[in-house]
């Protein structure tokens, strides 16, 4: 690392730790842009982190995740806890653009300096979504936030990705949209620590609560934690105290049981794997985009070779590794 960059990273880290919100915001931008300074920052701050509890809030679009998040922010502020939110929205695969609209439903607390809300496009920017999110969470932790809420649309793979970042996973659903439990991918049902049935004033709530309790019981094979199934009406705050209490209970469970340590190690190990994978991938991509990397392969293809054997030859000569 060059001396000026080292000094700049050190300076930004110090300002972030002192509670400078612009510094935290810029640090997140660096991480999201895949700027090398982002990883350096995260690295330098690691030793100061580990105090925040990270909660993933996932569920299908329209389930009320943002409204629930806003209600939780207020509940936490009432408990004198500082809260940071990362609201992840999908990115258009066609244009790369994104509309980040969750902030609309989270602005009641905007003037409170115990709350930090950041909107993010789910692009990963070369780091992969899970890896970028892990770095952002670390920065928020280092900045002194006690609870970090990550809100993401997730009914499939994304929802499982959140499990590599958050300590407690909330799955939010609403009644009345058909066969909800069946429609969900098995993955997210299995990793949920707390089930929330939002818009519980709607018909179909009892049936959904019942179905989810069945699902929750099945998780007992893996853990002594029985995921609670909680009805809420996030819009008017009904049931939010119970949700916040359940999160605290899960946190206490993780602290007291070997499961907490095991899962924390699992998250760090997932991060290491993602970092290594990205580095290798970037090295390979870089080599393949050079004339030297492409020419032999293209020549072979032009002579009629099949792509599988060409790929095998590229891998076998190993010239993409950094040493060669």
């Amino acid at each position: 690392m060059s001396a000026p960059l080292e000094a700049a990273v050190h300076d930004l880290a110090a300002r972030l730790r002192a509670g400078d919100r612009a510094a935290l915001a810029r640090a997140i931008s660096l991480v999201e842009a895949g700027d090398p300074a982002g990883l350096l920052l995260s690295e330098s701050l690691f030793a100061t982190t580990g105090n925040a509890h990270t909660i993933g809030i996932t569920g299908p679009p329209g389930a009320g995740k943002s409204t629930l998040t806003d209600a939780l922010i207020r509940e936490y502020r009432g408990r004198n806890l500082r809260v940071a939110v990362l609201a992840v929205d999908p990115v258009s695969p066609r244009t790369g653009g994104a509309t980040l609209g969750d902030r609309i439903r989270m602005t009641q607390t905007a003037a409170d300096n115990g709350v930090f809300v950041r909107s993010s496009a789910a692009r990963g920017n070369g780091h992969g979504l899970g890896l970028t999110t892990a770095q952002v969470v670390r920065l928020m932790d280092a900045a002194g936030y006690d609870r970090i809420l990550i809100e993401t649309v997730g009914t499939g793979q994304d929802g499982v990705t959140i499990a590599t970042v958050a300590a407690t996973i909330l799955l939010v659903q609403t009644p009345g949209s058909g066969d909800e439990v069946q429609a969900l991918k098995a993955g997210i049902l299995e990793v949920a620590d707390i089930f929330v049935v939002n818009k519980a004033e709607l018909p179909g709530t009892d049936a959904l609560l019942h179905d989810l309790r069945e699902v929750a019981r099945a998780t007992r094979e893996r853990s002594i934690w029985l995921p609670p199934v909680l009805p809420t009406t996030a819009r008017d705050g009904t049931g939010i105290v119970a949700v916040a209490d359940a999160i605290e209970a899960h946190r206490a469970h993780l602290t007291a049981s070997p499961e907490g340590e095991r899962r924390a190690m699992g998250r760090l190990w997932a991060e290491v794997r993602a970092l290594v994978r990205n580095e290798v991938l970037a090295t390979v991509e870089q080599y393949l985009s050079t004339p030297a990397g492409a020419s032999r392969a293209v020549a072979a293809l032009q002579k009629g070779a099949d792509p599988i054997s060409v790929a095998r030859a590229v891998l076998a000569d190993r010239r993409w590794t950094r040493e060669s």
Binding site: R26, S92, R103, A110, V117
Partner: peptide, 27 residues
């Protein structure tokens, strides 16, 4: 958004303080 930008929309009735805070946090 359709031209490839990340766009955060605040919604109606924002105070100047809320707008400044959003600009800071969202960088």
């Amino acid at each position: 958004r359709d031209s490839g930008m990340e766009v955060i929309y605040t919604g109606l009735h924002q105070t100047p303080e809320m707008v400044v805070e959003a600009a800071v946090q969202e960088d």
